[in-house]
Design a protein around this nucleic acid. Structure first.
Length: 496
RNA sequence: GGGGCCGUGGUGUAGCUUGGCAGCACUCCACCUUGGGGUGGUGGCAACCGGGGUUCGAAUCCUCGCGGCCCCA
């Protein structure tokens, strides 16, 4: 908070919301009571998406939701391009001849691909891309001929399609996976590919700061990576219900795909070699992490860096001073706009309380209230969505204070999210403790020897749980199952 | 891959067991009223997921499909 406002602290009010007296937005389930239900409702009620589109696993991005999503995309565009990764666009239609080049891939994906044919009768057959490789790598083969063509570093933002037959969830598991990005790179050596992966990790860390959420980073269990690949770092968001949501991955592909697709280059000695590859991807699940982490019983709480509207101005209109209030509201709006701060003035003919709930549901970070009182005192009332605190600020300072508050809120959200994150883990040393932890909606942290037998046994300890990854750092201890000395910690929870 | 629950105006629901005029609340529209945490009133618009079957008659019973939710692998 700015120094000129420190003296105003006595005026900071705390609304009576922590006392159990709060009024919930109509139809919105309490987040703690049933997170899944809350999530389903809030994405629709806040105007992010309309899920009533009658194709399983598909939905319509509404203007507000799409703006938030595109704000996240804007950050990855900036980050990737600044890192020298070029944006391309590959077709959605993948010819079977491409798809079959990696037979392992094809066998794995043919049943969950959408098959497309031209025309009603016969016609050429394609699949809609379930992942990027079969669309991209045949082109990589054409583009890469010598070591001078390397490294090749590109990305695209595109939809992916999976024919999910089971339970879909909007933005979490869809048949059309929208606003999804994939970075694909090819390198002359393993060392270079490793460096690239480290860079991707840095880029992703920054993306998580944009949404003000702390992610869990793990190594994917070896048997879950692409056949022939070296390994994968996966990002997870820990949801309020203690379940882990896979949320981006950096895949060290080694030469596995290069061999399947024939991506080779002549090195400086004229020798033909296979390229080393990295592929990295994520998408709308970043938005899910932001929604789930920051939201509360009144709806969304959007981090300022991705909020399409930073400030909503609500005029409190009484008959007598109506015009003056409106004029002041529009004047403040203009001040903010000139400073590049996206804002709206809600001039609808509704009561103030109704507008408050509406904009809180949509998660707008700041609200400025302007009524007869503000006219008289010349001070504006600012309300913070994230902690319900109100403060007063002189009109002349409003732009500065709003700017500072937006930065402050972004930080406060990350701090709060990090605290919740730390609390979501429990280190355990026995099977009983493990079961207790996961039943308590915590992520259990255990030592694990790395064997498939022990992995299977963990899976059988409690319903729906799995060891979904191991810590990036080594850690000495004894396997929670077999008791053998080992050097890695694993994370056990239900996953989405 | 296996199992379970469900589908009624825009939203949430009653009605289904025992077949017989589809009701309520919110939203929305109009007018009035009100306005610092969902003002109040009057009037109005608006629905049985789709196909097939049983029946004089289907929201209700049967069946297939589509869609949603949950559990297990």
């Amino acid at each position: 908070m700015s120094s000129e406002n420190k003296g105003e602290k006595s005026r900071v009010e705390n609304l009576d919301v922590e006392q159990g007296q709060e009024i919930l937005p109509e139809q919105l389930t309490a987040r703690k009571t049933d997170f899944s239900k809350w999530y389903n409702q809030v994405i629709q009620l806040a105007g992010l998406i309309d899920k009533r589109y009658n194709v399983k696993g598909c939905f319509v991005w509404l203007e507000y939701g799409y703006s938030v999503m595109l704000n996240i995309k804007k950050h990855w565009d900036e980050l990737f391009k600044k890192a020298g990764i070029k944006e391309l666009y590959f077709p959605l239609l993948v010819p079977l001849e491409y798809a079959k080049q990696n037979n392992d891939w094809f066998e794995g994906f043919k049943d969950q691909a959408f098959w497309v044919k031209g025309g009603v009768e016969g016609g050429e057959q394609y699949i809609l891309r379930p992942t990027g490789e079969p669309a991209m790598y045949p082109m990589f083969k054409l583009w890469i001929r010598t070591h001078k063509d390397l490294p090749l570093r590109v990305y695209e933002t595109v939809s992916s399609f999976r024919y999910e037959t089971k339970h879909t969830r909007p933005l979490i598991r869809d048949r059309e996976i929208t606003v999804w990005h994939e970075i694909h790179t090819a390198h002359a050596s393993k060392l270079e590919a490793d460096e690239e992966a480290k860079l991707h990790e840095k880029l992703y860390d920054e993306l998580w700061r944009v949404i003000a959420v702390k992610p869990l980073k793990v190594w994917k269990p070896k048997w879950e990576v692409f056949p022939g690949a070296i390994g994968a770092i996966e990002y997870y968001a820990i949801m309020p219900d203690g379940r882990a949501l896979e949320n981006g991955s950096i895949n060290l592909l080694g030469q596995a795909y290069a061999k399947k697709f024939g991506i080779t280059f002549k090195d400086a000695n004229g020798e033909e070699k296979f390229a080393w590859q990295v592929c990295t991807g994520n998408g709308a699940r970043l938005l899910v992490a932001a929604i789930a982490t920051h939201g509360d019983d009144r709806g969304l709480v959007l981090p300022p860096r991705i909020a399409p509207i930073k400030v909503v101005i609500v005029p409190i209109l009484f008959k007598d001073a109506k015009r003056e209030v409106e004029t002041l509201a529009l004047e403040v709006s203009e001040m903010l706009s000139k400073a590049g701060i996206e804002n709206v003035v809600d001039l609808n003919d509704e009561t103030p309380g109704s507008k408050f709930y509406y904009w809180e549901l949509k998660g707008v970070p700041l609200r400025i209230e302007i009524g007869p009182e503000e006219l008289n005192t010349g001070e504006l009332t600012i309300f913070k969505r994230n902690d319900y605190k109100k403060l007063r600020v002189a009109k002349q300072q409003v732009v500065d204070v709003v700017k500072k508050l937006l930065v402050q809120i972004q930080e406060e959200l990350l701090v709060k999210a990090s605290e919740a994150f730390e609390k979501s883990f429990v280190e355990v040393n026995s099977k009983q403790e493990l079961v207790e932890a996961v039943n308590n909606k915590k992520v259990a942290v255990v030592h694990w020897c790395g064997s498939g037998d022990c992995w299977d046994e963990i899976k059988n300890l409690a319903e729906g749980v799995e060891l979904f990854g191991t810590d990036l750092k080594p850690s000495k201890g004894k396997c929670v199952i077999c008791g053998k000395e080992c050097n890695s910690k694993g994370y056990v929870a239900k996953t989405y």
